[in-house]
């Protein structure tokens, strides 16, 4: 970071600056939280709630405007959950999977589209909530809890039967998988979003005009794909936990 700061000292643009790993700390009791993450996440939550209220304020049989858009989103989420979890079981999981998708998607795009860096903070800078490891680990752990809950509520203790399917020597790998699933989920999302923001930041630092645009467009694409991957994998894990004892594993992205 000192390297980058010294680099930025060379350029004559005061706009281009890069801060990594600095946080706006809020102290609650003796707990420390990252304030900038919560500020942007509240923004994202606000956007989601406002759009939902707009969409459901005046429900029509023939949808138009916001209702049409959000119905498209809901149909998309339902399709995703149905594909991964299955026709019979998917309905109770639509809110969880859908909120994962919507929250991550809006977070990522807000990081790419909203010029957060223009708002000055005493410490750290605003960015997509998903570029903070705490957020992604929180979501990944919730996903783990969700699929354990799904498995146990469906099969009771018979869920442990999954660990010796299809052959008993898979047991250690299955146990390891329970740890690698949240790890890969959280680090995939965190790494992609942070890397995207850093690449854009570095390019802006070096060439602050036009050159970063293709990378920003690519960033929009990656952001959307990452939201889709996270939600799809979460749904796939839940579906895997609930499926009957003759299924096959799901591929990793």
């Amino acid at each position: 970071m000192e390297m980058l700061n010294s680099l930025s000292a060379f350029t004559s643009f005061p706009l281009a600056e890069l801060e990594v790993g600095q946080h706006l700390y809020w102290h609650i009791g003796n707990l420390k939280v990252h304030g900038q993450v919560f500020l942007t996440s509240w923004f994202v939550i606000g956007v989601l709630i406002i759009v939902s209220l707009l969409a459901t304020r005046n429900l029509q049989r023939v949808p138009s405007g916001t209702q049409n858009l959000m119905e498209y989103a809901l149909e998309f989420i339902r399709g995703l959950a149905k594909d991964q979890i299955g026709e019979k079981e998917y309905r109770p999981w639509v809110p969880f999977v859908g909120t994962l998708f919507l929250f991550i998607f809006v977070s990522n795009w807000s990081g790419a589209l909203v010029p957060w860096k223009l708002i000055e903070l005493p410490e750290g800078e605003l960015a997509a909530p998903t570029s903070d490891i705490n957020t992604t680990i929180a979501f990944a752990l919730l996903t783990s809890l969700a699929y354990f809950y799904a498995g146990f509520s469906k099969k009771g203790l018979g869920y442990f039967g999954n660990y010796v399917q299809p052959v008993p020597f898979m047991l250690p790998f299955k146990i390891i998988e329970d740890f690698t699933k949240p790890l890969s989920l959280s680090f995939r999302l965190f790494g992609n979003i942070l890397a995207d923001e850093l690449v854009v930041g570095v390019l802006v630092l070096l060439v602050p005009l036009f050159v970063p645009l293709p990378v920003m467009a690519l960033g929009l694409f990656t952001s959307a794909i990452q939201a889709l991957i996270f939600a799809t994998l979460a749904a796939a894990y839940i579906g895997e936990a609930m499926e009957d004892h003759h299924g096959e594993g799901h591929e990793e992205h």
Binding site: F38, Q67, L141, L142
Partner: peptide, 29 residues
């Protein structure tokens, strides 16, 4: 830097799930 942001974010997310379930998924579904 992992700190109290993690559990608070998880709780916040669960609350968001509940809110969106009430104002988005249920009526629109």
């Amino acid at each position: 830097d992992i700190d109290a942001t993690l559990p608070l974010m998880a709780v916040q997310f669960l609350i968001l799930v509940a809110i969106l379930n009430a104002i988005f998924y249920k009526p629109l579904g």
